[in-house]
Amino acid sequence: MALSLTCPICGLRNGYEFRFGGADKGPRPLEEGLTPAQWCAYAHLNTCVAGVQLEWWNHKDGCGTWFVARRDTRSNREVPKEDVQ
């Protein structure tokens, strides 16, 4: 599939070098007062957006860094920051 991603360290690389790490759901919720529903939402639930989403990626077969990318799930294209409202 035509996926290329820009690693902040290695630059533009073939998508198969990366591991998807889930949609960016913000910081991990604090343990204190955490309800099962909140944890479930953080661990499992997705909006499954058909459009641009912020998401975590790991350059698994490269430098190993984790970073956040913006990708359009309808085209697999990375979207530059300035194009996201």
Partner: peptide, 14 residues
């Protein structure tokens, strides 16, 4: 399966 969510139905040489 390509292991990232998407709505394309593209195939790959890979």
């Amino acid at each position: 399966m390509d292991r990232w969510p998407n709505y394309t139905t593209q195939t790959s040489a890979h």
